[in-house]
């Protein structure tokens, strides 16, 4: 179980001033459950994911993984403890290929599984394995390679940060299928999906709404959906109009 207890975090903003962006939140993520984290832009979803991964450091509070306080562990150590994070905006590399990243993500992976992991995210292995994860991949392609890495890690806690962003609707449907088959009913794994996508929200066991660095609501999709429906539908419409389908 992953537990955040009274977590507060501040960043240095442009003027060099300390600004608190996460205000003492507590959350619990049980194994065998699928969580959605949603809420308006700038609400603090990515910051929470980065706090869990150890990319951001909290000022107050503690983070526990299976009752062990992991607050002082760095990113690598947390990764080795079983936390994985698919970035909202994955960085690009010069000279690292798709196959390199997948091999780093899943040490010792055999060739067949390597190729399967790309097919799972709708990429043809022949076309992509040898490509650089660099400027030559489109935004959606980078996202899919990113998701493949985290799916392949089999981490006990997997966090996906807006997996739908920049990804075409067909692939989103496929991804939902993969997420259901991998995480639903698997008592050992926890998945946390940061999302604005209605279909993704509906497959989750619990939805957590984060706004202004606070948890505004949480509950089952049946409980939460009526509260956020308008916001999400509005965002989905924008997505379908193509306005935010591809992120840069």
């Amino acid at each position: 179980m992953l537990k955040l207890e009274n977590i507060t975090m501040a960043v240095n903003d442009n003027n060099g001033e300390n600004r608190e962006i996460i205000h003492g939140i507590s959350m619990e993520f049980q194994p065998g459950k699928l969580y959605a984290v949603t809420g308006p832009n700038g609400g603090g979803k990515t910051s929470i994911a980065k706090l869990i991964m150890g990319i951001y450091k909290h000022n107050c509070g503690s983070i526990y993984l299976n009752d062990e306080d992991i607050s002082d562990l760095n990113v690598s150590e947390r990764a080795r403890k079983g936390i994985a994070y698919a970035f909202q905006q994955p960085p690009r590399f010069k000279g690292l290929r798709v196959s390199d990243l997948l091999q780093i993500a899943c040490p010792g992976i055999d060739n067949i599984s390597l190729r399967a992991s790309l097919r799972d995210v709708g990429l043809c292995p022949e076309d992509y394995l040898d490509r650089d994860v660099g400027p030559g991949l489109s935004g959606g392609e980078i996202k899919r390679v990113e998701i493949a890495q985290v799916l392949g890690r089999d981490a006990s806690v997997s966090i996906f940060d807006e997996p739908e962003a920049g990804v075409d609707l067909w692939t989103i449907q496929k991804l939902i299928g993969i997420i259901i088959s991998k995480f639903k009913g698997n008592d050992d794994l926890t998945a946390i999906i940061i999302t604005h996508n209605e279909n993704v929200l509906h497959i989750c066991d619990e939805i957590i709404v984060v706004e202004d660095g606070l948890i505004k609501a949480k509950g089952t999709p049946e409980e939460i959906w009526p509260l956020i429906r308008e916001d999400v539908e509005c965002k989905m419409k924008e997505q379908c109009r193509g306005e935010i389908v591809y992120e840069i």
């Binding site: 991964m53 990319i55 760095n74 990113v75 690598s76 990764a79 080795r80 994985a84 994070y85 970035f87 994955p90 960085p91 590399f93 990243l101 780093i104 993500a105 040490p107 890495q149 890690r153």
Partner: peptide, 14 residues
């Protein structure tokens, strides 16, 4: 820094 963090999040040391 982002590239480093990304690879560390896959379990590599710095």
């Amino acid at each position: 820094g982002e590239q480093l963090i990304k690879l560390m999040s896959l379990g590599l040391s710095e």
